[in-house]
Amino acid sequence: MAATAAVVDRARLDTRETNRAIRAAVAQGQSVKVVNPGANHNIGVALQGPVTLTVDGSAGYYCAGMNDGVTIEITGSAGWGVAEGMLSGLVVVRGNAGNSAAASIRGGTVIVHGDCAARAGTGMKGGLLLVGGSVGYMTGFMMQRGAIVICGDAGEALADSMYEGRIFIAGNVASLGNDAVEAEITPEDEKILVDGFKTSGIARPKRLRKIVAGRKLWNFHKHELAFWREAL
């Protein structure tokens, strides 16, 4: 955090005033520190620019939602939908994240040092979600592109109904979702992993498995009726 960072005290401002103050600083190219976030919702929504926002504590739902280019660090935990819809930038959660972390992001990187709850990375369209801990059920559901790296375990239905996303997991998987299959790690994957772990500062597990779509759900084939019975 640069010495010139603006300080915004969430305890003294409501959500609207907080975001106005953050935006005013960001518009000046000034980094911002939000103190006393109090797990309130919608802190630092729809920010744009090459600046840094630090949320000094825990944030509620949709912190850093729709981010485009800002580096956002949450020193505590984050609620549902952290960084949802992000286009670019970096979001770091030092604690845990609630449901739907990095939902539908189209670019950028989300690092969660702790665990993620259910549906992490659901509908991702690009970017990287790297989780130092474990993830809940339906992580990566309908993931279209991008990558999720999970250093711990995964709940049920991991990687259900994916398109071109890729998931790397070190720990146990309660169950794979529909049309999820294991695949070999490629040199392209390796680059994503090297860059991701370098950015995160999280130690890379010794072994990672890669999960991708089996592509049987991409188009309907009546000769695979048993497969489609659960999915169509």
Binding site: T15, R16, H41, N42, Y61, Y62
Partner: peptide, 13 residues
């Protein structure tokens, strides 16, 4: 209950 917060997010955006 979640949608209340989602709508607030859209308003903030």
């Amino acid at each position: 209950d979640d949608m209340i917060i989602k709508i607030e997010e859209l308003r903030e955006a």
